[in-house]
Design a protein around this nucleic acid. Structure first.
Lengths: 223, 223
DNA sequence: CAATAAATACCCACTAGTACGGATTTACAA
DNA sequence: TTGTAAATCCGTACTAGTGGGTATTTATTG
């Protein structure tokens, strides 16, 4: 009998009402690490994993999942889109988002979708375990850093909506290598209007070069 | 007595010649995951961890480390720089690089420094364990994907040196929001020369807009 | 109702960069 | 030695974008 088997017995012994968990992350190492970490916990059982949102949906469509732990950045369909679909097709599935991102805008965006937890990859594993525990008890769990960010955004509400929706839309098109003219044609507005938006975007993001703007777009996950 | 304690006893029992390991990654969750994963392995003992290259060096300066497992992307000093310093101050320390990057150029760059292993974060944890096992036996371990990349680069040697050193240097400066004039002043060359390089960079990278170029720079870790 | 924010649109002057072009020196490999 | 690659440099014409304005309409909010 090996250690893993021995371990399984112990786990089962203290396992009263285990919650089934499905993991999504494109980094297999991280996935394995979390699985390994959860193996110590009798309260959860990992029933599956996927390295993309699409594969995760394939599973969730046909299986009942209590808890979904997903990365934000995924190849193809991203974490936000996954959350939206899961909330629709399986409303009882709780979701914990595991992300690198601590930008106010992104955090708020995904919290609006009604996720049960948000933990940063920079946080220790204890935060994740606490989040799982909280979710089991029907609570919402945000890691310390996220709480701090949200409080900050309440204290300085002007920072959060830096760019308007339209400006954001235009910035995305700029990042798609479109010229002002093309953007105007795409959005059915005059090139002059695009220029004005562009000026405002530069002013608001405190950048003066296109390069700086693209960096901003990267930092804010607009690319 | 809890499970962890019980586990420690088993570990010690089968522990013959454990290798001490130091981990470096800026994502605490990943760090915790790997630690948890290695806890099953009697052959290695994690003696420390750090979330930055600088902190890792502080430790390595005063302690003997058999194996260093480090991320490539780190805040501040990056993995490549860390490897170089460690190879200098502690030549007997073996190094396994754990990275998201599979760009030929980056992989070759770090392999040149004489690391003992290179595993992608996309690989499963088995690859990492195999790498550790190989390193213990004095071998060099490259994960499957990395091997494939290296073989590909041998088959298509023209792809790897897409940009010359000078062009790379100039691209970095472009990405730092410098104008052609400023770049010329920085490198003590004429603005015209910078223009020529710029043209060549655009041609070689098959991009036509600055935005596309910045994206290329991101993809190739030049930013 | 007044004030504000967002989206729309235009003018003018200016500059940085683009797109052609061509050219020289150095170094290294066939 | 001949050829190639890399790095250096220049001219001219053109365009896209920058920076400075101003102004209108619509919607929201105090």
């Amino acid at each position: 009998m090996n250690l893993a088997a021995l371990f399984a017995i112990f786990k089962q012994a203290k396992n009263t009402q285990a919650m089934n968990v499905f993991l999504v992350d494109d980094h297999a190492i991280l996935l394995d690490g979390i699985k390994s970490m959860l193996a110590y916990e009798g309260s959860v059982e990992v029933i599956g994993e996927a390295n993309s949102a699409e594969k995760a949906l394939d599973f969730i469509k046909y299986h009942s999942v209590d808890l979904l732990i997903t990365d934000f950045n995924l190849p193809g369909m991203d974490g936000l889109a996954l959350v939206r679909v899961v909330k629709k097709i399986s409303p009882n599935t709780k979701i914990i988002v595991l992300s690198q991102h601590d930008e106010t805008h992104l955090v708020k965006e995904i919290l609006k979708e009604g996720v049960a937890g948000y933990v940063l990859k920079n946080d220790s594993h204890k935060e994740l375990l606490q989040a799982i525990e909280a979710v089991k008890n029907g609570k919402i769990y945000l890691s310390n850093d996220i709480n701090r960010i949200l409080i900050h955004s309440m204290q300085f509400p002007d920072e959060e909506r830096l760019l308007t929706d339209r400006e954001r839309e235009i910035l995305k098109l700029i990042a798609q290598e479109k010229s002002n003219k093309e953007i105007g044609e795409t959005l059915f507005i005059s090139e002059r209007t695009v220029e004005t938006h562009r000026k405002n975007i530069f002013r608001k993001t405190k950048t003066s070069s296109l390069v700086g703007l693209i960096k901003f777009a990267y930092a804010n996950n607009l690319i």
